[in-house]
């Protein structure tokens, strides 16, 4: 019999609290902003953290409050932007869609190895251990820090080089933050001609360490009719605003370090 009392006693407590709480719920009801739920539906929903808020829920609340811009969700792209703009009743134009590109072509065999790295699979760690496994201090170490943070399965590690699948890349920017060498850059998707090297070493060193390293010969600079490519700090860089995708620089580059992404 005592077991029945036990069940009844706890059951009664439960019922009493349930009634009191449901009453309190009505009494202290706070109108929830319906925009939050709508925004939560419209964002990419990967909880990637690219917006700077703790997850998609945090971002949705901030947008509904007006504390976050409607274009804060980069992974959602233009679709999310127009949806959020509609929900919040503001005008918003989709900017140039961007994509992350690895500014290095130093796969195994192209960039020379300096030491055989046998430590933890972490670029951040290897980078601090006397400058990583490759001779070039600006090369992709290929240990996959960017691969680990990519929520969209857009990065593969091929022959110790990070390769980004531009179809899958949502430009959330997490890999850019994760790369300890800063060789992943967010670039406009339509600017398909890219200098894939950022080494600041001298031409001699660049030649010795990698067969596809920029040697700052400035031939591209001379070939460009639109003043779009310039050599600074030992490597060439293209200004995507001025580039007309004529590919004149690609033809003259002696090191094959300017690439064209098939669009």
């Amino acid at each position: 019999m005592p077991i029945v009392y036990a069940i009844l006693a706890l059951g009664a407590l439960g019922v009493v609290f349930g009634v009191v709480l449901s009453f309190a719920d009505k009494m202290f009801a706070v109108p929830v902003d319906e925009k939050v739920a709508l925004i939560r539906e419209a964002v990419a929903g990967a909880n990637c953290g690219a917006c700077g808020f703790p997850g998609c829920d945090g971002f949705a609340e901030a947008v509904a409050r007006g504390d976050a811009p409607v274009d804060g969700c980069t992974p959602g792209g233009a679709k999310t932007l127009t949806a959020l703009a509609e929900i919040m009743g503001v005008e918003a134009e989709a900017g140039d869609p961007k994509v992350a590109r690895v500014l290095c072509q130093g796969a195994t065999g192209i960039a020379k190895e300096r030491v055989t790295y046998d430590g933890f699979e972490s670029c951040a760690l290897a980078n601090q251990l006397a400058g990583g496994p490759k001779m070039c201090q600006y090369a992709c170490m290929g240990l996959g820090d960017c691969f680990d943070v990519c929520k969209f399965d857009a990065i593969r590690m091929v022959d110790t080089l990070a390769v980004i699948d531009e179809e899958k890349c949502t430009a959330c920017g997490m890999c850019v933050k994760a790369c300890p060498r800063g060789i992943i850059e967010m670039l406009p998707r339509k600017a398909t001609v890219t200098v894939r090297c950022q080494n600041q070493a001298s031409a001699k060193e660049a030649r010795e360490s990698c067969s596809k390293g920029c040697i700052a010969c400035k031939r591209c600079e001379k070939a460009c009719e639109f003043d779009a490519i310039h050599v600074n700090n030992g490597f060439a860089k293209i200004d995507p605003e001025k580039c007309t995708l004529c590919e004149a620089c690609v033809a003259v580059c002696p090191c094959d370090c300017i690439t064209v992404v098939a669009s």
């Binding site: 009392y5 036990a6 006693a9 706890l10 407590l13 009191v20 709480l21 309190a24 009494m27 009801a29």
Partner: peptide, 29 residues
């Protein structure tokens, strides 16, 4: 009811309900 042995679970019950109540109250006020 001679159910002293249930004190821990009953107390957890009471505390949980109380905190819920406080939470609702705070959210509003």
């Amino acid at each position: 009811l001679k159910l002293e042995y249930l004190s821990t679970i009953a107390f957890i019950f009471i505390i949980a309900a109380l905190v819920q109540f406080v939470e609702m109250f705070m959210k509003k006020s």
